[in-house]
Structure formats: structure tokens, C-alpha cells
Amino acid sequence: MDWQDYLAPLSQGAWVTIELTVYSTLLGALLSFVFGIGRDAHTRLLRWLSIGYIEIFRGTSLLVQLFWLYFALPVIGQAIGVNLQLAPVTAGVLALSLNIGAYGAEVVRGALKSVPRSQHEAAVALNFTPRQRLWRIDLPQAIPEMMPPFGNLAVQNLKDTALVSLISLGDLAFRAEQIRNFTQDSTTIYTMVLLMYFGMALVLTALMKLLEHRVGRWRTEN
């Protein structure tokens, strides 16, 4: 077998990697906003919940989280009589998004904090409600600020998807390991796989740059 024979199975794996990346990045972005905004909310419960989430998922390792969701959660399920055995893809997407969401929440929070206080005062003077202030004044100005770190997190997330191969999800890393077991042609396979991840990362970076331009259009007009 030579490298062309590896292309088909590796591409299959790459497709799974792309799907995992897209789903967990989108879900992670949602979590980032919910807990990044919740982190400085007026409601104490919401604030504490957000702090707990952020600290736990930033403070432990992604692989610990993945194994916990996949191996430990079913044990709890048994104890309370509910089936909590997650499918690998569910556990994978969940762990990836929870993990990246915790880092993203800090990004969202930092960007919201970076909106100048004077903007807040102008909004109060015009009698906007706190909710309108958040949605119409703070977030639109904070989002362009978030885009460069979000770009880095998206690439981080793409790299992290490789770990789900450890719970037998058929992503690119998993396929590579399968073929290597079969052919022992490590150099070729892993070189190809590294290049494929690199290519995907470059495309993802370009997409995030594009998005960055779109949401920050008013900044370039100024």
C-alpha cells in the first residue's frame, strides 16, 4: 500500500474531525456567551454558577473531562437508575464544547469589560435598560474584540478533537492509528495526518479572519 491508498480512509476521518470541530465550536461559542455574560451578572446564583463552570473546566484537563463524561457519568447513572452512558460522539462534542466554552467565557467577559465606561454612561443618559445596554451597546462593541482570541480557540478546538479518538470515535487521529496498526507505515501516515490537520487549521484560521472582518466592519470604516 502506498500513500494514495490511505487517502480515502483518512479523508473519512478528516470529515468526522471537521464535523466535531464545527459542532463543538458552535456549542462552545454559545456556552462562552452564556457564562461569560453570567460571570458578571447581577444575580448571585448566575454569577456563582458561571464561576464554578469556568474554574472547573479551565482548571482540569480536557482528557480528564472527556473520560469523566464517558466513563464516570454512567456510574452515577447506575447509582440513580438512569442510563447515562453517552454515545462517543455525544461525550466528545460535550467535553470539547464545555472545555472550549470555559476558555471562551473568559474571552467574552474580558471583551465586555474592555468596552469603555463612558459608553455605559452614554447609554444610561439615553435611558437604555440594562438588557438593551448589553445587546445594543456592549456586545456589538465587544464582539470584534473577541474575534482574534476566538480564532485561536477554534484552532485549539480543532487540535483537541484528536483526543476523542481515545474513546473510539472514528476521527482523523483514530483512522490514522487504525491504518498504522495494519500497515506499520508510521512515517507516511503521520506525515499525511499532520499535513491534513495543518491544512484544516489554515482554512479555519482564514474563515475566522473573514468573520472577524465582517463583525468589525464599522471599525475599518472609522
Partner: peptide, 21 residues
């Protein structure tokens, strides 16, 4: 850029299986 954009797991496999070659 290449090192930063590729997963640790694959780099590890690469070193582990390819270096002995």
C-alpha cells in the same frame, strides 16, 4: 506555525513511531 496548528497527540505518535525508524 506548523507545530502550533497540529495536535499534540499526533506529534506524540509521530515521535513515538517514527523516531525509532
Amino acid at each position: 506555525e506548523f507545530i502550533r496548528d497540529t495536535p499534540l497527540l499526533i506529534q506524540l505518535f509521530f515521535l513515538f513511531y517514527v523516531l525509532p525508524d
